[in-house]
Amino acid sequence: MNITAIEIKNLSFNYGKLKVIDDVSLEIAKGISFGLLGSNGAGKTTLIRLMVGLLKPKTGSVFCLGKPPSPATARNIGYMPQLPSLYSELTVYQNIDFFARIYGLRAHNTRNQRVDEVIKLVDLWPKKNVSVSQLSGGMKQRVSLACAIVHNPPLLFLDEPTVGLDPELRVHFWEYFGNLTAAGHTLIVSSHTMDDAAHCQKLIFMREGKVIALGTPDELRGAVGKPNTTLEDAFLYFIRHGEVKSHVQ
């Protein structure tokens, strides 16, 4: 069995003249949660879109579960876009049920069971038959997560899943993500917050489309070389470090 979930080689991407991903090479092992950290516009969403196959690399290559992303690999992938992408007229149940069908949960009984299960998981049981348009922002975010995990995919891309969640749910989500990786699932999570970063087994810091640091949270803290460094300090350190480097060039 292949042990890498994602293999990226010399990947570059640009929107017109704007270089958004700049020569990124990266391997992500199976069974871990992997964090993509970076400021606004660093290229996290673009990198995820390239990994799921929504965008094609301009140069370089992406292998997702051993193959270039395609409809065939899509079945094993769950994708939660940054903005809750839901059918606002439909109910919570109808949205999740739709994606369950799309991802091949055909049998009526198992599908119903699974849809109910994920609704309870994101703590929206009382809202099961409410239109998505009538939910709060955080609730929509939870429905969006439910749609991404309903088919129990081995590889899960979550673009800022914890934005807009209250602290209690954030903890609850990370508990659930921990269960998933313990069961062998791979999670790729983008975020701004170092609180999320601390939950990842491995992570990268991104800046202007480049990977400026890669490691476990401990390694990244250690690299700064000062005692009691927080991840936040480490992030700022690497951001500045990167700036120094580009000035030198």
């Binding site: 409809p71 994708y79 809750p84 992408s85 059918y87």
Partner: peptide, 14 residues
């Protein structure tokens, strides 16, 4: 505009 196309295109549907 509501972003569901992105979701559909990342799914196995053709």
């Amino acid at each position: 505009s509501q972003g569901t196309r992105e979701r559909l295109m990342a799914s196995p549907v053709s």
